[in-house]
C-alpha cells in the first residue's frame, strides 16, 4: 500500500453509477474528448456531459452488438419480429431522462441527473480554468493520463500544486509544439 500525503488522490478509481468505458468510446471509437466535455475549451469547467449528449447515439444504440445479434437469431428461429434489447447500463440513461425502454415518458416523467463520482477534484481555494490549457494546445492526456485506455476513469497525476508549477515553469521555457506559451506562476493565476 503506497503511502501518500492527505489530499493526494493519485490512483483514485471509484466505481461509477453507470459503467461507462472511455476505452470503448474515446479509445476504440475515437470520439473526441471535446464532444462530450465541451466546456473544456469555453469555460473553466470541462463538465460532464448531460444525459441528452449520451442519447445522441444511445437512442439508437441500445445494447452491445453481440446481444443484439443473439436476439436477431432467436427471433428468426421463433419466427417473430426482433425485440428491442436494452442493456442494463443504458437503461440507466433512459431512467435518468424519465423514459422507459421504448423512449416513451414514464408516469411522472421525473428527470434525474446521473450521480457521477467525481475523480479529479481540486481544493476549493484553487481556481482551475480548463480553457486556457486547451487553447494553448495541451492534450487532455498530459494531465489526465491515457484516459482512452481506461475502462474506469483513474486519476493518473497527483494534481498537486508542485506538479502544476513544474509544468508551468517548464512549458513557459519550452513552449507547446513550438508555440510560445506564457504559463504564469503568479499566485493570483489560480488563487483569487
Amino acid at each position: 500500500m503506497a503511502w501518500r500525503l492527505p489530499g493526494d488522490n493519485t490512483g483514485y478509481e471509484p466505481v461509477q453509477p453507470v459503467a461507462y468505458s472511455h476505452r470503448l468510446h474515446a479509445g476504440d471509437m475515437e470520439i473526441p474528448c471535446l464532444y462530450c466535455h465541451s466546456g473544456a475549451e469555453r469555460s473553466r469547467y470541462a463538465g460532464i456531459p448531460a444525459t441528452s449528449v449520451c442519447m445522441n447515439c444511445h437512442q439508437l444504440v441500445t445494447a452491445g452488438k453481440s446481444a443484439v445479434d443473439e436476439e436477431v437469431l432467436l427471433a428468426e428461429e421463433e419466427e417473430r419480429p426482433a425485440k428491442r434489447i436494452v442493456s442494463p447500463e443504458l437503461a440507466k440513461l433512459y431512467e435518468s431522462l424519465g423514459l422507459d425502454e421504448r423512449l416513451a415518458p414514464t408516469p411522472g416523467h421525473v428527470e434525474k441527473p446521473i450521480a457521477w463520482v467525481r475523480v479529479h477534484n481540486l481544493a476549493d481555494f484553487v481556481r482551475f480554468d480548463h480553457s486556457p490549457h486547451v487553447t494553448a494546445g495541451l492534450a487532455c492526456q498530459s494531465c489526465h493520463g491515457p484516459i482512452e485506455t481506461m475502462e474506469r476513469v483513474r486519476q493518473e497525476a497527483s494534481l498537486s500544486m508542485g506538479w502544476c508549477l513544474s509544468c508551468h515553469r517548464d512549458l513557459s521555457e519550452a513552449g507547446i509544439a513550438g508555440k510560445a506559451v506564457h504559463a504564469s506562476t503568479d499566485c493570483t493565476t489560480c488563487h483569487y
Binding site: 448531460a50 441527473p113 457521477w116 467525481r118
Partner: peptide, 8 residues
Amino acid sequence: FALPHTQQ
C-alpha cells in the same frame, strides 16, 4: 458527486 444536467 458531480451532477451534470439531464438536458444539455
